[in-house]
Design a protein around this nucleic acid. Structure first.
Length: 384
RNA sequence: GGGUAGGUUGAGCAGGUGGUGAGCUCCGCUGACUGUAGAUCAGCCGUCUUCGACUGUGGGGGUUCGAUUCCCUCCCUGCCCA
């Protein structure tokens, strides 16, 4: 059976970094690429039109949330997720594996699956590999994810292994359960931050006929060094496997560079949109907290180097006011900006990988987003 | 003018019938956030030399070992009556 997606990539001169195109039933995605997270069939505060404008080529939605509300059967009856939310671009659905981790206190995992007390009404909800596939097939996403068990990677190796072994068994069950051939299915590598476990997990998952490979279980509390070291291990173990590589849940601007250099093609993260709603902008001059008093009289655009709606039309003072007044426009404008920045950064990375400017771009972003320079928003514009 | 209810840290309150009022909610200040139970959460929010100490219950006076509490007086605010 031929894969419902296509992926072609070519190497670059930067580490294992490559530039590619991921083709899906609903369109293509340039890689390295970033997926905004739209858990509940919406990237919070943004319309599909906004998503197009900020440059999104693919978004992520969630199995667990949508099965609870409004219900995947309902979405299927209404024509599937794309039609339901009026987004005709590619959609990847997460399997609910992350909720096994984030809602751990509401759930109980066994070898067959996981039982949650619904965060909405407390009702018992059962998620198994088969069920996760059934739901995602009903939603009709372009790419489905295998159900995995995610744990704190710094836990004792024995505990990480239990979750990893379970993830491997669930991966085979997900493959066996799939019935749609117009939907890709990605497997997920686990194994915490232990090199041996990671290598073992890569061997197990990469041996299966998944359409793409995801690296899970990272950016859940481990150090940056552990993140980089683990990516190195996974990249080495993956070798020249031709499939698209998706690093789940990453990341911050500096994280993208680390991962790209280890051959990662695809990212998703709630950070740009979540921190936006909490008043933090990612800009060409570093992080900016719009709730800080110093912006109240600042007529400068949030990011002088940005051409998004917020930066074209509005001042820092205005956005600072909107956040204080808790006006809904604050959340939309900040989200528009952060996604414009993040997707622009990915575009910049793709370009820089080719034209020799990659190292300079990486150092510039690192300088802006590491602790010392992170909150520096002094710019030529603010100094006027 | 008479009556009545009040006056507590930026705002709004709680409490306190003689022995520790710095307690709450807003506002404000700052930080956090990585496959979204998150337009959320955390810390701070009288002063200081800040693991502690000091000051503070409208002003003044009195009683008392000790007063936010009891007494006198004045000021201010709301309401009712004239």
């Amino acid at each position: 059976m031929s894969s419902p997606i296509g992926f072609t990539a070519r190497p670059t001169s930067i580490g294992r970094a490559r530039i590619g195109i991921l083709a899906t039933p609903h369109g293509s995605v340039d890689t390295p690429g970033f997926m905004p997270v739209g858990t509940q069939a919406t990237v919070k505060s943004l319309s599909p039109g906004d998503l197009r404008t900020v440059g999104a080529q693919i978004i992520l939605a969630n199995t667990y949330h949508l099965s609870l509300r409004p219900g995947h059967e309902r979405i299927a009856r209404l024509g599937g997720l794309h039609r339901f939310m009026s987004w005709d671009g590619p959609i990847l659905t997460d399997s609910g594996g992350f909720q096994v981790f984030s809602l751990a206190h509401l759930g109980q995992v066994d070898d067959d699956g996981v039982t949650f007390a619904s965060h909405l009404d407390g009702s018992p909800q059962r998620l198994t590999p088969e069920r996760a596939i059934e739901i995602q097939e009903a939603l009709g996403s372009d790419i489905a994810m295998a159900l995995d068990q995610l744990v704190d990677g710094t836990l004792p190796v024995a505990e990480v292994r239990v979750a990893m072994d379970r993830t491997h068994r669930w991966a085979e069950r997900c493959l066996a359960a799939r019935s749609r051939h117009d939907q890709a299915l990605f497997g997920i590598v686990q194994g915490g931050v232990d090199p041996a476990l990671r290598r073992e997990s890569v061997a197990a998952i990469a041996a299966l006929p998944f359409d793409g490979l995801a690296i899970g279980g990272l950016s859940v509390g481990e150090s940056k060094d552990d993140l980089a070291a683990t990516l190195e291990v996974v990249a080495g173990a993956l070798g020249d496997d031709p499939r698209v590589r998706y690093l789940m849940g990453v990341g911050s601007p500096p994280d993208f560079f680390t991962a790209v250099e280890h051959g990662v093609d695809l990212f998703d993260c709630v950070l740009p949109t979540r921190v936006a709603r909490n008043g933090q902008l990612w800009t060409s001059v570093g992080r900016l907290n719009l709730r800080n008093a110093r912006h109240l009289d600042d007529p400068a655009p949030p990011d002088p180097a940005c051409s998004c709606e917020a930066c074209t039309n509005h001042s820092r003072a205005y956005l600072a006011h909107l956040f204080r007044a808790e006006e809904l426009l604050a959340y939309r404008l900040a989200s528009v900006h952060n996604l414009t920045y993040t997707l622009g950064l990915m575009r910049g990375i793709r370009t820089a990988l080719d034209d020799g400017a990659y190292g300079a771009l990486r150092e510039a972003v690192r300088a802006q987003y590491t602790s010392a320079g992170a909150r520096t928003d002094k710019s030529a514009v603010t100094d006027r």
